[in-house]
Simulated scan of single mutants.
Amino acid sequence: MTEAERHQQIVSMLETRPFATVRELIDALSVSPATVRRDIEKLHDAGEARKVFGGVASISHAARAHALPFEQSSDLAVDAKRAIAARAEMLCRDGDMIMIGGGSTCHQLGLRLAARPLSIYTNSMPLAAALGTYGACQITLAGGTLHREPGILHDAHIPAPDFFASRLFLGAQGVGAEGVMESHPLLPKATRPMLERADDVIVLADSRKLSVRARFVNCPIERISTLITDDAVAEEDVRILEDAGVEVLIASASGEKT
Rank of each mutant, 00 (worst) to 15 (best):
A85V: 05
A244E: 08
L68V: 09
R116S: 06
S74V: 07
E242A: 12
E178T: 12
A49F: 01
L113N: 00
S183A: 13
F53W: 14
G132E: 08
E196H: 10
E89R: 07
M13R: 13
A142T: 08
P150S: 10
H7T: 09
S74W: 07
L170S: 03
A234K: 09
V233N: 01
I152L: 15
G95E: 09
S60N: 11
I98R: 04
F164A: 14
E24C: 09
A4I: 14
A4S: 14
G135W: 00
A198V: 09
G101E: 10
T105Y: 00
A63G: 15
D231R: 04
S30A: 13
P33W: 13
L68H: 05
R197S: 01
M99T: 01
A234N: 12
R87M: 14
I10C: 01
M90S: 09
Q138K: 11
H107N: 15
L195S: 03
I84Q: 07
D27V: 07
D75V: 10
K81T: 02
G151A: 02
K189N: 12
R82Q: 14
E235G: 09
T35I: 11
Q108S: 13
D45I: 08
P33N: 14
L146K: 09
V246W: 00
A172Q: 00
C106E: 01
P117G: 00
E235Q: 12
L204Y: 00
A4W: 12
A156N: 11
R87L: 10
A172I: 04
K189F: 11
L186G: 00
C92A: 12
K81G: 02
I240L: 13
E242S: 12
Y134C: 14
I152R: 11
S207F: 01
H147G: 05
K81W: 00
P185N: 06
C106G: 03
L153K: 02
P159A: 13
Q108T: 08
L141F: 09
I221F: 05
S32G: 08
K257D: 15
A46L: 13
L187M: 14
P193H: 04
R93Q: 12
G95C: 09
H7P: 06
R50A: 13
P193W: 06
K51V: 03
E196N: 10
S211W: 12
R223D: 08
V56H: 01
P161Q: 08
I228M: 04
A177H: 15
A62Q: 15
R213V: 15
P193A: 06
V78W: 11
L43D: 07
P193T: 06
S124K: 07
T140N: 10
A63W: 10
Q108P: 10
Q72P: 11
R93W: 12
L91W: 02
R93P: 10
A156V: 12
C92D: 07
T145G: 10
M99P: 02
H7S: 11
R64F: 06
V203S: 01
T191F: 08
D79W: 13
R192F: 13
V31I: 13
F216H: 05
P161K: 04
